[in-house]
Design a protein around this nucleic acid. Structure first.
Length: 498
RNA sequence: CGCGGGGUGGAGCAGUCUGGUCAGCUCGUGUGGCUCAUAACCACAAGGUCGUAGGUUCGAAUCCUACCCCCGCAACCA
């Protein structure tokens, strides 16, 4: 035990405010990290921001400031979100960091044997300052929909990375599981995509088209394409190549990414690593997207959900709970305020919160708060562990809730409140009652353990309340009812005041 | 014939690889029970020809064939 583990998250592009998708990255990585720490591993957990590229430069220009000033202002939004979702990251990288920039230039030089100069020709929109694919140009009938002007046929000198040369090795690594891709269907999808081989990737731009980026060493006219710069962060943040210690953490155990960037992480990134003679990450965790009411979240529709708002209204653990359990870890999920609130009130409040209060209140009432020896619960933890190890966090939480339910059922079966009433007439009742309640506490403590990766605050409260042998009362109840988006069932039954 | 995923009671899903013990789970609904608890908890019930049509088989949600519908992707915007 006590292995050094490393988990990474995709570094978001800072040209907009953070959204739920970003939050999902940090949350999933954090759950994994906490789980591994709980099991005695040392975990390094990287986060960061991607700050180069034309879009950033454009945004900065709009704001009338230089790009660095702009990113200095923006990156904080992301750091704030990471902290707010409770992510206990250990490293934060900005692609504008001096060390990162220097390291990327080193990487470029080391990749020289696989880099060649070529010409990129394609349809270019002056307004976008970007090339579009032939297909996209065709779809739009040769006119950029954003700028309403025709694309121009343009060619420019680029450096290319010979990704094609690595196709077979990359395919082998994926097929053999040396670099696992979870879930399976993403792996299939990607293998299908590279069936005909990877294409060489253009990895630089003339600086007249792209000014804000890492300069190509030895060619003042070229700037690096952002993906080369961005992907490198996973190793530069560890100190690659010049600082000690990065070897202890690379290769990464898990790299958390969204489904939209799988091709970069399963194609370009392994090619870079092979070119550098470094091992590939062991596993890519590819999560899906969060829809809102089954509609893609987008600014134009105006259905963007701000994670901050959720956390402020329902609390951090409620947020973590919903996105860990009701958004499938490895697939798309759906969010609505009604679903969120229902899950909060019924599952967190009625199931978990309520069972905590019924147990603690019985112990306070019948035994003056004294718990006695809580036996080790005999609940089978294998399904939970299996789900955690295969990164199906939602399934793991299902398992936890099964034990919550069975605790409620247990109490209903043995009826401690009736046993308590018999104490005057039945001499065994006292001991029996104590046994029941300590059994219940044992079960709750176990639930608390299982919740550590998911609901750290709740887990802590459960432990604080029950672990000392005497009930330590907490302020208020866990997950008090909130009815902002769903009807309050109590409203119709409250008798009118006279 | 581009590639991938999916269509299971009102909603969301599991089960399909390895045919039978599969029609299951959660939410919602109804009835009853209970009172330790956050108007909570527990039990029971209603509700599905498992997308459609064929086929294989003693037997198919599960295998085969065809078709219909939904969603994502289609490579240098991150």
């Amino acid at each position: 035990m006590g292995k050094n583990l490393y988990i990474t998250t995709a570094i978001p592009y800072v040209n907009a405010k953070p959204h739920i998708g970003n939050a999902l990255d940090y949350l999933l990585a954090d759950i994994w990290a906490r789980y591994q720490k709980q099991n005695g591993h040392e975990v390094r957990f990287q986060v960061g921001t991607d700050e180069h590229g034309n879009k950033i430069a454009a945004k900065a220009q709009e704001a009338g400031i230089d790009p660095k000033t702009y990113t200095d202002q923006m990156y904080g939004n992301f750091q704030q979100l990471m902290t707010k979702v409770g992510a206990e990251f250990t490293d934060f990288v900005r692609t504008t960091d001096d060390h990162h920039v220097a390291a990327v230039q080193y990487i470029w030089q080391k990749l020289q044997p696989y880099i060649y100069k070529g010409t990129y020709e394609g349809w270019y929109c002056v307004g976008c300052e970007a090339f579009v694919t032939d297909k996209e140009a065709a779809t739009n009938n040769g006119i950029c929909p954003d700028h309403n002007q025709p694309y121009q046929r343009l060619s420019e000198d680029n450096y290319y990375l010979k990704t094609s040369e690595f196709t077979d090795r990359i395919r082998d690594a994926i097929e053999s599981g040396k670099m696992k891709i979870e879930p399976e269907f993403r792996k299939k999808e990607f293998l299908e995509l590279i069936k005909d081989g990877l294409q060489d990737v253009s990895i630089s731009r003339p600086n007249k088209h792209l000014s804000w980026g890492v300069p190509v060493p030895g060619d003042p006219n070229q700037v690096m394409y952002v993906w080369i710069d961005a992907l490198a962060n996973y190793i530069t943040v560890l100190g690659y190549p010049d600082r000690d210690g990065w070897q202890e953490y690379w290769p990464a155990d898990v790299q958390v990414i969204g489904k939209d960037i799988l091709r970069f992480h399963a194609g370009i990134w392994p090619a870079m690593l092979m070119g550098l003679d470094l091992p590939l990450p062991k596993k890519l965790l590819v999560h899906g997207f969060v829809n809102v009411g089954n509609v893609k979240m987008s600014k134009s529709i105006g259905n963007v959900v701000d994670p901050n708002e959720l956390i402020d209204q329902y609390g951090l653990d409620a947020f973590r709970y919903f996105f860990a359990r009701h958004i499938p870890t490895l697939d798309d999920g759906d969010f609505t305020w009604e679903k969120f609130e229902t899950a909060y009130n019924t599952e967190l409040g009625n199931d978990l919160g309520n069972v905590v209060s019924r147990v603690s209140s019985m112990i306070s009432r019948y035994q003056a708060g004294v718990i006695g020896d809580a036996p080790q619960p005999e609940h089978d933890m294998k399904p939970y562990r299996q789900a955690m190890d295969s990164l199906n966090f939602n399934v793991a939480l299902d398992e936890v809730w099964l034990t919550v339910r069975s605790l409620n059922q247990y109490l209903e079966r043995v009826k401690p409140w009736e046993v308590a009433k018999r104490r005057d007439t039945d001499t065994d009742a006292e001991a029996h009652l104590s046994e029941i309640l300590s059994q219940a506490v044992g079960s709750l403590l176990q639930i608390g353990d299982l919740l550590v990766p998911f609901l750290p605050h709740t887990a802590e409260i459960i432990h604080k309340t029950f672990e000392s042998g005497v009930i330590v009362p907490q302020d208020g109840v866990l997950f008090p009812k909130i009815y902002l988006h769903t009807p309050d069932p109590r409203a119709k039954n409250i008798p009118k005041p006279e």
